[in-house]
Simulated scan of single mutants.
Amino acid sequence: MTVRDDPAPPDLYQPSARRIERERFRRARTRRAGLLATGSTLATAAVLVALVVSSPGWSRTRETFFNWHYARKSLPDVLHGLWLNVQLMVVCGAIVLVAGLLVAVVRTLRGPVFFPLRALATAYVDFFRGLPLIICLLAVVFGVPALRLNGVPNDPVVLGGFALCLTYTAYVAEVFRAGIETVHPSQRAAARSLGLTSAQTMRYVVLPQAVRRVVPPLLNDLVSLQKDTGLVSIGGAVDAVAAAQIVASRSFNYTPYVIAGVIFVALTIPMTRLTDWVTARMNRRQSQGGTV
Results as ranks from 00 to 15, higher is better:
T182H: 10
V232M: 03
Q226D: 09
I180C: 06
I259H: 01
L194G: 10
M202W: 05
G179W: 02
T169N: 04
A248R: 09
T255K: 04
R250W: 11
Y254V: 10
A260V: 02
L225C: 10
A173M: 13
G230Y: 02
Y204M: 13
V215C: 10
T182P: 05
F176S: 04
T169L: 10
V211M: 11
N253V: 12
L194T: 11
C136N: 07
G179D: 09
V140Q: 00
F142G: 02
L207P: 08
L166T: 04
T272W: 04
H184T: 11
T182F: 03
Y168Q: 04
T272L: 15
A210P: 07
R148F: 04
L218S: 01
L218V: 10
L218R: 00
V262M: 12
I246F: 11
V172Y: 05
D228N: 15
A178T: 14
R177E: 09
R273D: 06
L219E: 02
T255Q: 08
S193D: 04
F264E: 06
C136S: 11
L137K: 00
A146D: 12
E174S: 12
V262N: 08
I263D: 06
G235H: 00
A146H: 06
Q200I: 05
L149P: 13
L138P: 03
V223G: 06
S251V: 13
A260L: 05
K227T: 11
R148N: 14
